[in-house]
């Protein structure tokens, strides 16, 4: 279902190996398709059907109301909250990380190496320690329970990985590029904006993808720092549905919510996966 053979006329061994590849990939993809089909069919059943009928039985009478129930749990609003938090924290976080990485990679100063290690240490620290001090900090600066407070926290937690990889990338940039800008009389800040950032784009795209996935799925911090439902993000909304599923046997609503929340991401993948794949790198500069 998800493949066909090539129309070129390659050698027989290549036809065979292509066929094998197609079969293997199709089998794997069938797993994904099957899982999504299962979610979709279940989301249209009643809870009694879900437990009593075969998983492959079609819903006797499609329960579109499940989607209404899931939507009424506020998923629409949660989605925009997640979007707001993710876009802001990924862009600001990357900009701040770019600045710090530039300073660490391209400006010689005493303590540069020590500072880098300080940043890298953060990658290894488990995030477990943060909840109580963060709660107090945000409360004291009046950002508790606000999306902006969560944005500030998300920016900070992405910094170590971003700085570690961006600095490594910038160190390998040829000095001539930067120098040419200075010869033209550009200020350091201008050089940073017009030379360094464009040159760093492949790594920035890679990190943007990773940061987006992390933040989109994050729920421990969001749960503790956002006590009110107006400001819930998608993972918290789904948690609410999961609690309903486990404690009130309302599984079908969870499946419906899952389908609803995965649609925007799926659309994004469908549109942008090739662009993302072209932009990604974790290698050296010259790639």
């Amino acid at each position: 279902m998800c493949g066909s053979t090539t129309t070129r006329r390659p050698a027989p061994t290549r036809v065979m190996s292509r066929l094998v590849l197609h079969l293997a990939l199709a089998a794997y993809c069938l797993g994904s398709v099957g899982a999504f089909m299962w979610y979709l069919m279940t989301s249209l059943k009643t809870n009694t059907e879900f437990f009593s009928e075969s998983p492959w039985a079609l819903p006797a009478d499609p329960q579109w109301g499940n989607y209404l129930d899931a939507w009424n749990s506020g998923i629409g609003g949660f989605f925009f909250n997640s979007l707001y938090v993710t876009v802001l924290s990924v862009t600001i976080g990357l900009f701040i990380s770019l600045m710090a990485s530039y300073a660490l990679a391209r400006i010689p100063f005493r303590g540069s190496q020590a500072l880098l290690i300080l940043f890298v240490v953060g990658m290894m620290l488990p995030a477990f320690g943060a909840l109580i001090p963060l709660y107090l900090l945000l409360r004291d600066i009046g950002l508790l329970g606000t999306l902006n407070g969560l944005v500030v926290v998300y920016i900070a937690v992405q910094i170590p990985l971003n700085v570690f990889l961006l600095r490594g990338f910038m160190v390998s940039m040829p000095r001539e590029l930067e120098e040419a800008a200075y010869v033209d009389g550009a200020s350091p800040f201008r050089t940073f904006v017009s030379v360094i950032i464009p040159q760093s784009m492949p790594m920035v795209v890679s990190l943007a993808v990773l940061n987006t996935l992390n933040i989109w799925n994050e729920f421990v911090l969001a749960l503790v720092l956002l006590p009110r439902s107006e400001s819930y993000t998608v993972p918290i909304g789904l948690l609410g549905l999961a609690i309903q599923a486990e404690y009130s046997a309302q599984w079908v609503q969870l499946f419906a919510g899952l389908i609803l929340t995965s649609i925007p991401m799926l659309v994004l993948f469908a549109i942008a996966q090739e662009r993302i794949a072209r932009g990604l790198t974790f290698g050296g500069m010259k790639g």
Partner: peptide
């Protein structure tokens, strides 16, 4: 460039220090 050091490093250091490093 060194004049840029503080303004370039400060935002990352403050956020990272207060929110990641200190609890760590």
């Amino acid at each position: 460039k060194r004049r840029m050091l503080i303004p370039f490093l400060l935002p990352a250091l403050v956020l990272y220090g207060a929110i990641t490093l200190y609890p760590g």
